[in-house]
Design a protein around this nucleic acid. Sequence first.
DNA 1: GCCGATTTGTCCGTATGTATC
DNA 2: CGATACATACGGACAAATCGG
Lengths: 249, 249
Amino acid sequence: MPRAKYEGIYRSIKQKIEAQDYPYQSLLPAESELIGEYGCARNTLRRALAELTDQGYLQPIQGKGVRVIYRPAGKTAFLIGVIESFQETNERNGLHAVTRVVRFEGIETDERLASQSGFMVGEPLWAIERVRYLDGKALIRDVNYFSQAMVPGLTAEIAAQSIYEYIEKTLHMRITTTKRRVTVERAAARDEELLDLDGYGSVVVVSSLTFDGDGLLFEYTQSRHQPASFCFEDTATRRRAPAGGEQGR
Amino acid sequence: MPRAKYEGIYRSIKQKIEAQDYPYQSLLPAESELIGEYGCARNTLRRALAELTDQGYLQPIQGKGVRVIYRPAGKTAFLIGVIESFQETNERNGLHAVTRVVRFEGIETDERLASQSGFMVGEPLWAIERVRYLDGKALIRDVNYFSQAMVPGLTAEIAAQSIYEYIEKTLHMRITTTKRRVTVERAAARDEELLDLDGYGSVVVVSSLTFDGDGLLFEYTQSRHQPASFCFEDTATRRRAPAGGEQGR
DNA sequence: GCCGATTTGTCCGTATGTATC
DNA sequence: CGATACATACGGACAAATCGG
């Protein structure tokens, strides 16, 4: 069960929202009521609500209440603000996935890679290239670089399964933060060769940096997607002032 | 000035990180020290740190400290988890932008639009189509639908400037939450006609729903980008367990 | 391996400010 | 104006993880 009380509350409310027990556009019961229901302090409840707000489920309105702005959506390739492995994503969406490893070797970080990734020049890395098939079509080409020092004992066999599972279950390492950047590039020759591009001349490139539980970089990955199969969702909130100057109003 | 104390602390620390006063990979001073420095309660400081953690600046490590994982990056088209208007984005990046309105009319929500956007069938909308030029090249085609009831008095002239500025400054309405979805589509005939696609046969489509301060939907937009000029960043954090079951470990 | 100091994580209770109705 | 609801801030208590002796 959830280690933390606020997390249990978070899950409970999230579940009620998804079940439309708290329907779209309705107001949640007041904080004071929820506090009674869950038997917790105000701060604890508010922490749970804050998380749901960040994920685009709720919208608090001062002096009025907390509005539900979640609506059931179609299946998507990514969850909002959450790290998921390729495996996990497809299991969640009920798809049959196959991975083929087309390259696996030890290399040393060169200048170009260092500037892209943030690894030190000369640091030994595992360079892995994999093609991901969904329902028989080659849709994603992943190029991973893992620190050899931080992820020892990696093999092509593990790469064919789930590297994340190996890292978490076997090495007992915690994956905590990932920074992603999404761009679109013209398809390289190797993209054309390995992927079913279906007439698209371009690929969606998701570049990501992953940090472990100590805040140390251990992975740099370029994930190149066939465009039609790519989808990404995000929720943003408006901050106070647009950076520059504060005007009175 | 920042209304809230935690926000001042947030900005101060953020600025020190960006100035590499707290360098990449270093540990922040302990909470107890920062509390002394800012003269605040622990919770207040922690709120500021939490925000920086969400934005990918910090990585807290229980029992150890808080690690800085921010590195100065190149200019990007979008900020992480923050709502910005087209105008604001380009001012921040020092680019010269021009907007041309190619369509402006009142319509009623039909079935198809209702299912995409969440507006009620029959609800009167403003339908606006605009092309955005950066340094003389047509890079973005925006198709906006605004609720007439919630955004009265909209004109083509305002659309040529900044609709968000009109909404916030004149209507005194607050923009609070935006849900975005990023996909890639083959270029439509109208994309080819209006945009400088530079040989790309596809466009990046950012569909977004925007809610006002009361949690009510007032805008649905499709923003179609020339692929080369598109960039999107995100920071994700790993949650406890992958949904399914809790295994002991 | 244990213990104690340090540091972050969670939770509580309370007081005050501010927006809505 | 008062009642209600969310927003901010404080201070304290204990738990859990890390690290060094």
